[in-house]
Design a protein around this nucleic acid. Structure first.
Lengths: 218, 218
DNA sequence: GTCTATATGCCGATAGAC
DNA sequence: GTCTATCGGCATATAGAC
């Protein structure tokens, strides 16, 4: 089993501004080696997103990868560890998408870019996003603490832009923490309801960027 | 086992306008008889909300109600049926909160009232709301179809107000279905993150009413 | 690194006494 | 309507051959 964390940031580096097409790459997991470990991981993402972590059996994951149940344990020491690697990767990818999108000369431009990219990521990668956002309780306390650090960084990224806009007078925000959470909520909830037939991720990103901007503009 | 559905609408009838204090009644399940069935049901709500349906065992539910595992089956024929009764009740309660809140002379007043009440309900009843919003996949196809009807009615309630506002020129909405979903999303996602220490449900409702109104106003 | 076979335990649900 | 006892099955994870 190779170390996944070291390679987590590879693909999101390609994203610039609201160039959300870059996050639609199908080869998201190409850095996971060997191929058997990658098949197990992508099978687990699909299964966890479809049925949830607890309802997914190791037999199901193994069979999606074309293996016997026992073969899973050669690559991952437990089902929870598989979830953790997916969750850690997903959180880092989401944070990197935000950091790469935080470009623009005004708080309004930056906010629109952040919301568009974060929303499009949740739509395009709705299976990973579903695991990231809704399977936190299945993590061990230690692993949860690790991803919680990344979650705080994600929240801070949005809050900072809103605070900048308030300072220069382009935004009117009565409750900064509450509005930060609301803006994040809008994008995160996409993972709950999105399916490919519900529209283009980039178009959804643009709509949500507009809605978020209107929520705070003076 | 008594029929729960017939008594679903009792408490939400008390709610008028944005009188969200009425939905904070702690005796939400008082109509479930006998008391043993009610203890099982409230125990199941807490357990499902904490760990999720699949991670909750019938032994856990029974022990929260102070009973042996076997006693559960005197009141409910299966674990899934317990989930269904909770989900059906919760959906009907949420819909009734919306219908009671749809009061006001202008689309703006109506939208603010709807969003305030719907948001406050998700905060105040975040345990029930979590089961309602995140455990749909555990329902049988037949039971899912039944709650899906209620979910469409909830969505329609919001969409109608937005459409009325567009018609009389008080709202500017580029994408009506998309904006409807976004407004609903904001409130629904409250069930994911809300805990009592994060503020007063009524105050959150007011904040979200303001944000939703700004999303659509001309 | 993958397999077959299996250890070990908990799951949902039932049987039958009281 | 509640209990104790238990059924049959499937869960995660391991042992050991190849």
């Amino acid at each position: 089993m190779r170390c996944l964390a070291k390679r987590l940031l590879s693909f999101t580096r390609l994203v610039q501004g609201v160039n959300v097409s870059a996050v639609t790459s199908p080869l998201v997991w190409e850095h996971v080696q060997p191929a058997a470990a990658r098949r197990l991981l992508t099978g687990a993402v699909d299964a966890f997103a479809e049925r949830g972590y607890q309802a997914t059996t190791t037999r199901d994951i193994a069979s999606r990868a074309g293996m016997s149940p026992a073969a899973l344990y050669v690559h991952y020491p437990s089902k929870e560890r598989l979830l953790f690697e997916i969750s850690l990767y997903g959180h880092n990818a989401a944070l990197e998408v935000l950091r790469s999108a935080d470009a623009g000369s005004t708080p309004a431009d930056r906010l629109r870019s952040l919301v568009a990219a974060f929303t499009a990521w949740h739509a395009e990668h709705h299976t990973i996003a579903r695991v990231v956002q809704y399977e936190l309780v299945a993590l061990t306390p230690e692993h949860l603490a690790e991803v919680a650090v990344i979650r705080r960084a994600i929240s801070t990224q949005i809050e900072q832009v809103l605070a900048d806009g308030v300072r220069d007078g382009s935004f009117a925000v009565a409750d900064l923490p509450g509005t930060t959470l609301a803006v994040l909520s809008l994008s995160i909830d996409v993972a709950r309801w999105y399916t490919p037939h519900r529209g283009d991720p980039a178009a959804l990103g643009k709509l949500y960027a507009d809605l978020a901007h209107r929520m705070v503009q003076t």
